[in-house]
Design a protein around this nucleic acid. Sequence first.
DNA 1: TAGTCGTGGAA
DNA 2: TTTCCAAGACT
Length: 355
Amino acid sequence: MPSADLLLAWYDRNRRRMPWRAVPGQAADPYRVWLSEIMLQQTTVAAVIPYYEKFLIRFPTVEALADAPSDAVMRAWAGLGYYARARNLHACAKEVAALGAFPADIAGLRALPGIGPYTAAAVGSIAFNLPVIPVDGNVERVISRVFAIQTPLPAAKPEIQAHADRLAGPRPADLTQALFDLGATICTPTKPACVLCPWREACAAQAQGIAEQLPRKATKPARPQRHGAHFWLTDAEGHVLLRRRPAKGLLGGMIELPGTEWRATPWSDAEAHAAAPMPAVWRKVGMVEHGFTHFALELAIYAATVPRIEADGFRVPIAECESEAFPSVMRKCVRLIRPRSASTLRPSNAEETPR
DNA sequence: TAGTCGTGGAA
DNA sequence: TTTCCAAGACT
């Protein structure tokens, strides 16, 4: 059985500094812990930091976030991905503001939008010092190795959770962050630094020499290819036509150039012209490629200028479209047309212009 | 429960 | 180049 005290001693010597972490000895701010945990879902620390800093300046408290217009939240999140997180973040802030404070128990946290079993345990342990262990990718890897679990993921999750639960106990906030740090710096996916590991003596995988082969994972299906066409339509006054995507589903609530559906077969020029927002002399500008988690996307980009735009959507001055809530794939499309816009690729710091 | 849902950097 | 991966939630 691995020793929590051993891990905590290692943590006290090696704790990593991060913008959302409390200074040793001081209480953590539940708002900051929660905000960081939502952003860190399936997202690297490096990608999160600039967004976290920006959110904290723009929305210093959960009340400020709750009172902000939805479009301001989506713009601030644009580029970070998994946009349902931003919608749930805003909804959660409203509920917490109405409650007066974050719930200090697992059931109360779990009932909030965007907070699942992992995040409830993470916020519970880090912000409220509840004796629980959040099981994320790091903890899955550490537990799989320490106990030499051969069951492939995701089937092994219950087994891993059961082992993790038994580790809970002393200094919950530090123990949780110690496990994160161990997984991030020592017990890494490839080439784990077992020689430096505080749990080396207790690790079954290390004893068997199979640490790097764990955790085992079920093979994933191949990503299909999809195709679409999107349109850069400008008018004589220097406006461009944009659209807001449906509130739910892929890139829900985000802004896009008007376009076709994304299907398995490519769009011919004739098909694309027929699907354009309005008749015009369309010129093919180029192609944009983008990889999503479960499919690869190839977009043909067409451009045209007309005297007056008459189509569904809304028009914005071309120079101001940088501040729109574009997901990355759409920012790539815009960059194809306006190469200079690359400097504002991510994250957008432009002023908000509520509509 | 198995899919859906982004992104960019590392391997 | 392609694949893998990162502090998962929701349906």
